[in-house]
């Protein structure tokens, strides 16, 4: 699903690499936490998978494809098989919940009939049945994140990438989001989640990958958040 072979990434005008010789593999259907303090390289790791950045050295394989060999115009097609969720939700404030989810399908040219059918389905899956016509501003943070997850999942991606999805939520809403991600994982979708939330990692007991200053310092199945920093 995802394979990093000796991947390093150094940004221009920076001495220390953001990622330093990282090699790892994530299998289909896994649920993986990516932990580490700010500046540890988590965001770079995710951006490399999305091909927002290219590695300085090493190879990144996603969904069986070497991203270095993927031509620019094929990148959008690769991204259609990935879903992405962020800490700040990134919803369109002037579109309804339903339109926000539909937007993801409209811009990849899905027919209207399909959109009409799958949008209510996915909203029900994330627990927002009946809230299709509400505006994002009228929803709680947890509900907004559910909309974002619905948008990321509506195209049934193979891989869901979540960058601190609970970062802006209270513990109760966070638990709800984690339950949802776990449910999505059980449908066969691989989930890769970067997080700072110790309680969640400790509770879920999933695989944990820890980065520190660009180095891979821990890769543990059924791990906990780890050492007190």
């Amino acid at each position: 699903m995802i394979r990093f072979d000796n991947v390093s990434k150094t940004y221009p005008k920076q001495n220390r690499p953001a990622l330093d010789n990282v090699s790892l593999e994530i299998e289909k259907g896994e649920f993986v936490f990516l932990v580490g303090s700010s500046g540890s390289g988590k965001s770079t790791f995710l951006r490399l998978i999305l091909r927002e950045e290219r590695p300085s050295t090493g190879e990144v394989h996603v969904l069986g494809k070497d991203l270095a060999k993927l031509s620019n115009w094929k990148v959008p097609h690769m991204r259609r098989q990935l879903g992405t969720v962020f800490q700040d939700f990134r919803l369109l404030p002037n579109k309804t919940v339903g339109q926000n989810v539909a937007f993801a399908l409209e811009v990849i040219g899905k027919p209207r009939g399909t959109i009409k059918k799958v949008v209510p389905e996915v909203l029900e899956l994330v627990g927002l049945a009946g809230k299709q016509d509400r505006m994002p501003g009228e929803l709680s943070g947890g509900e907004q994140q559910r909309v974002a997850i619905a948008r990321a999942f509506v195209n049934r991606p193979m891989l869901l990438i979540a960058d601190e999805p609970t970062g802006n939520l209270d513990p109760q809403n966070s638990v709800g989001i984690m339950k949802l991600l776990d449910r999505i994982n059980r449908t066969g979708t691989t989930v890769l989640m970067a997080t700072h939330d110790q309680a969640i990692v400790d509770q879920m007991r999933k695989r944990v990958i820890e980065l520190d200053q660009g180095h891979l310092v821990r890769d543990q199945s059924r791990g906990v958040y780890g050492y007190q920093h």
Partner: peptide
């Protein structure tokens, strides 16, 4: 968002 969900250039 369009880029993220894989809309073509």
């Amino acid at each position: 968002i369009m880029r993220l969900v894989g809309a073509s250039n």
